[in-house]
Amino acid sequence: MNTTAQVLEKNKERILEKWMQNQLSDASLRDDLMTSDELQHQSKEMLDGLLRAVSKGNYDNIYDTEFEQVTDTLRDISITRARQGFSPRETGAYVLSLKQAIMEVLIEQRKDDPATLYQEIMQLNNLLDNLSIVTFETFIKGREEVILRQTDEISEISTPVIRVWDGILALPIIGTLDSARTQVVMENLLQEIVNTGSNIAILDISGVPAVDSLVAQHLIKTVSATRLMGAECIISGIRAEIAQTIVHLGIDLSNIKTKASLASALQLAFSMTNLEVRRVDRNKGFKLTR
């Protein structure tokens, strides 16, 4: 009598065919994300690896070396699918539809031997379930990587340094200021100070939802670093409730120039650099004189 592995090996072509049918018939499969040739190639590679591992008689431990190739391919597929934007259902269906194909073939082959069939189905069921857990784990990991990368990108683009006047920079901070973000803010700000030779930087925190002692610490650090470079820092956009928390928490900002609005911070910056904004009677609008 043939072993399970031999039966599967003999019917490999049929399994692959059925598996492909199952995958392609799934209405949810995104043919816009992957051609069926690619899918066929991927699936064949996967099935080859699986049968090779099963032929060693291992049905239980997918972390053994025999399964290394299978789990590697599977991780590869899941992570690629996660990045390409496949849904979890589509990714999970990959292994689950293989299970269905294998079961169908086995049932055909073992028509007259229900006892063996039962045994085999139990074993393979277990194995493929374990593999589908790997798929999900990796899929989620892949998505997490995407999220992490986006977080980095967000903190990069959400801290623009604006040159508002010759020698005056403004940096509107929007969102929570944690230590990773502070790092990016400081680096961008200090580099821009060097690039533009600016003497004054205005840190506008109107867009920061709350200031606790940790956020205040980060602000103080940024101001200290700016001063070490030889520039002065003004913090603007301090709302009433932020002023209240700062005082209630006993945070000392007395060494730091603070202003309620960006406009008054800019005025302070002008007066620090001996600039003056005046209304000129004859012309409409403003004119700046040195």
Partner: peptide, 10 residues
């Protein structure tokens, strides 16, 4: 002072 040095000193 270099930016990296200023950040480190703080």
């Amino acid at each position: 002072m270099q930016p990296a040095v200023a950040i480190t000193l703080v």
